[in-house]
Design a protein around this nucleic acid. Structure first.
Lengths: 300, 300
DNA sequence: AGGAGTGTTGCGAAAATCGCAACGCCATAG
DNA sequence: CTATGGCGTTGCGATTTTCGCAACACTCCT
């Protein structure tokens, strides 16, 4: 949109912290950029950036303005998508930030289903941990966040919530795979463990539960990649930990839920930035995703 | 603000219903205007106006867009006022739509008090009936509305509410002015009446109450101007009707409340457009006005 | 002292915008 | 039915705004 050219310039300078870097990202020269900002500051009657030797930083007025700009840009997106919706074809873009646990089944299935109906809608899917996902919402880098056990935040508004019972995962030849149904935690701890590291919410949840029992654990392998842990479990007799939504359809892998007396279920949340009105495409995608999650795992 | 030039153009064309009239109001030529609109429609990929022989009318897409534009413009006002507030001096503009009943004491007193503290803040005070006042909020012609007994509307959000007991007003020589305290309605009806006409909420309220008793009234004089009715009551023995906030400080005029068993009190509402964030100056003025009303008449 | 990073400015070129005048269209009055 | 007045639109030249290039002034760090 042409009329918010200056505003996106300001936003980019604020994001990059430097006129030259922002100018490069915007494919213009620093001189054009500095003039746009000077003009805007003149119109406002006050500077919005502090000039430092290392670059530009927003001052208090700039913080207010940039927040307003981001609001305006995303609002314009929403109006454009509503207008496109009037003419029948649904266009738009959906930016989703989600945890690793959902990149196997839930998100790709849902994106495929949605794009089958509305091919004009494009997607960006960023994998972030729970805290980063909420931050992505606040900075308008993502429209939706699908995360486990998010930190309580005033910015996050839950659209859908459900329980996720933690499961152990191992190859089919593993001793624990010979039985079915819930497994007690103490049984698992007697086997070598391949666990998510502390960058993932699953591990925090596990550690919290174990801390109450006073049982320390010494995992054989730790990783920030759930995919790596699964691939390792295919190759040797280790027990890994996943949530149901992260378990792929693979007959070589067996999963059993952990008894809820030992480990309470985690909370899965589909959320958006509080107070924001989502574009049509995004809102409808969120509806479909929530329905799909509800069908698979039930509501909270 | 320069960057919303095109948007204000669109808004003006929508308001005036014609490019030529809008161009005149904007001090530009019709050709410049028609090009701006064509460019914007090209950017959106769809027309936003229907071209009629009598001029231009918004289509569905245009309705969405214009609503967004008005939001954006008023939001920009708010941000500017917040930024100005950061530098100490409070600037801004307050647009108030109010009923006749408040132009005597309440509003002028409050505006004077506010401007004494913040001379940089300017005001526009429009006198409208209750329905027009709500419409003025919705079209962003007013930021605040101070009205009696407004029609229930999803757009109106009440900031403050209080009761207003209806009073009769007459000159000090009038027979009814010889006593004090509440007066029964049937006493009043035996004297010649000078009443507000049906364009005013006070009259509707009175008619509703009388309709339930089946008592028809035949006022000697009707007027849409409360000021005229007061001035008439100064000149002859008629009984007029006012709400407390509309009664001036004039010893030649005597007022007595009507017994609440005969006529329930009316509701006074200070309101804004629902879902809108007011500029600093406007919000603070509304606070002061609410406090002042609370002191004079008590809360709801 | 020197180099690398920053934002800023003078100036000429390029682009967007505007005003003027003319055109085509349609509703309505005569 | 034609004439007329209002409407939006377009071609074109003038004006204003924006841009890119190069040079400058400044700060930080080696």
């Amino acid at each position: 949109m042409k009329h918010l050219r200056t505003l996106t310039y300001v936003s980019e300078v604020a994001r990059r912290g430097s006129i030259r870097r922002a100018a490069e990202a915007l494919n213009i020269t620093p001189s054009a950029l500095t003039r746009q900002i000077q003009d805007l500051e003149y119109e406002l009657g006050t500077p919005i950036f502090e000039r430092l030797a290392q670059g530009m930083r927003l001052n208090a007025a700039g913080e207010l303005l940039v927040r307003h700009i981001r609001d305006q840009v995303s609002d314009m997106e929403r109006v454009r998508s509503q207008i496109a919706d009037l003419s029948g074809v649904r266009r738009g873009h959906v930016a989703l930030a989600c945890s690793q646990a959902f990149v196997n089944q839930v998100v790709p299935d849902e994106v495929r289903a949605y794009r089958a109906r509305f091919p004009q809608v494009s997607f960006t899917v960023q994998v972030r941990d729970h805290a980063q996902a909420v931050a992505a919402l606040a900075s308008f880098e993502a429209d939706l966040a699908l995360v486990l056990q998010p930190p309580p935040s005033a910015d996050l508004h839950a659209l859908f919530t459900c329980r996720q019972v933690l499961c152990i995962v191992m190859r089919e030849s593993h001793p624990l795979a010979q039985e079915q149904g819930p497994v007690r935690l103490r049984e698992c701890l007697t086997h070598p463990l391949a666990l998510p590291d502390r960058s993932l919410a699953i591990r925090h949840h596990l550690d919290d539960a174990l801390a109450r029992r006073g049982t320390p654990i010494r995992p054989a392998v730790e990783s920030s990649s759930l995919e790596f842990l699964r691939n390792l479990a295919l190759r040797e007799d280790v027990v890994s930990l996943q949530v149901p939504s992260g378990i792929p359809n693979d007959r070589r892998l067996v999963s059993r839920p952990i008894d809820e007396r030992d480990l309470p279920p985690m909370t899965l949340i589909l959320g958006q930035l509080r107070g924001r009105m989502l574009p049509v495409a995004t809102a409808k995608f969120a509806d479909g995703l929530a329905a799909s999650l509800n069908e698979r795992y039930g509501a909270a």
